[in-house]
């Protein structure tokens, strides 16, 4: 269940980390977001609130 990040657009601002409703996103060592915990509700907040439109979420395989 990946978080697809456009690394050219992402500024590592952390809004996705901050807003995630299940608290599962963190920034990796390069400053890009990833899902640290496998608990996504695919609410879409991270994608919607990303100021740079750098994020795309995919649905978990089980519900896809």
């Amino acid at each position: 269940m990946p978080l697809i990040v456009d690394e050219d657009l992402c500024t590592s601002c952390g809004v996705c980390v901050d807003r995630c409703t299940m608290d599962i996103i963190r920034l990796n060592d390069d400053g890009f977001p990833y899902k640290k915990y496998d608990e996504c509700w695919y609410c879409g907040v991270c994608e919607e609130d990303c100021p740079e439109n750098a994020l795309i979420i995919d649905l978990p395989f089980q519900v896809k």
Binding site: T21, W41, Q62, V63
Partner: peptide
């Protein structure tokens, strides 16, 4: 039914 713990109808938080 999906078996996915957080695939609930209402907010799983």
């Amino acid at each position: 039914n999906s078996g996915y713990l957080y695939g609930t109808f209402d907010y799983p938080g």
